[in-house]
Design a binder for these strands. Structure first.
Lengths: 150, 150
DNA sequence: GTAACTGCAAATCCTTTGCACTGGT
DNA sequence: ACCAGTGCAAAGGATTTGCAGTTAC
């Protein structure tokens, strides 16, 4: 079994949570997919294994409070994704408002710059910044090409 | 009357929209407050002038499509604020998860860096980025001080 | 005059909750 | 055996929609 899954399960147990079937399945799902899922996305997959919607929501809340997954909000939708092993990971998402695709920019260059910005802002404003989420919107490469053909 | 209000009204008229009472009042509200408002915040103010909730939503959508206001999503809440005269304005918001206060970082230094990043990402990934919204979360200065006292 | 706009009420969608039952320790 | 965790059904809150009446042009 995946080591991350085992680690997370141990964390849950050590904090007094029960390792139920639904929780195991949810943890596996988040580790396996490793991308943003809406609660209903997770439900559509987990329902096949007999997990109910309220349980999906309840366990999302629990995993979030434990810092195992994190929330990203884009427009009216909330997404969740694995966060535990990401350290001070920065989330830089792009959403195309033609086709709606969401992708994550994983550029170390940008992350490095963003870290500098964070430190600068902390110094300037005195706030303690735990989390940075950047959402960019526009038109993705694919849609741009479609556009120029028509 | 405020010049911005007049400008926006002219834009709406020129695009074939009717300048109804509710729209005038909404435009004035967004220009006057110049901060993020939830749909219901706007409604609580505008209802006193006889504007209904569905109309608030419908006109928010319309003003957004016209690029006059823009949406910011923080956790489960959607906020809207004036965007027309902001050019390629970057929105950098900070939310304290102790007291819930939301403030905008208005640092030209960070905006300059963010512009570089945007250009870099456009080149790297080929997407056309129209809009950048950065949400930082953590603990604000005030709450940090309260914490250290206790 | 007429098409766009509005208010009202109802529908819809996402999320949460109450409660009795079940499963993990 | 106990209490956290679950499914179900129902409640709740935000947003959207259908429709008949109204207003700006």
């Amino acid at each position: 079994m995946n080591q991350k899954v085992i680690d997370i399960e141990n964390i849950l147990k050590s904090r007094g949570y029960k390792l139920t079937e639904s929780r195991k399945k949810m943890v596996e799902l988040f580790v396996k997919t490793d991308v943003h899922l809406k609660p209903d996305d997770a439900y559509q997959i987990l329902r096949k294994e007999g997990v109910s919607l309220p349980t999906v929501y309840r366990n999302i809340d629990m995993l979030r409070e434990m810092g195992i997954i994190k929330e990203i909000t884009l427009e009216n939708d909330r997404y969740y994704e694995l966060d535990l092993f990401s350290g001070k990971k920065m989330h830089i998402h792009f959403k195309c408002h033609k086709c709606g695709i969401i992708k994550e920019y994983d550029s170390s260059e940008v992350k490095r710059m963003m870290l500098e910005q964070r430190d600068f802002l902390e110094k300037t404003y005195g706030d303690y910044i735990e989390d940075v989420s950047i959402v960019m919107q526009g038109i993705c490469e694919t849609c741009r090409q479609l556009k120029s053909q028509s």
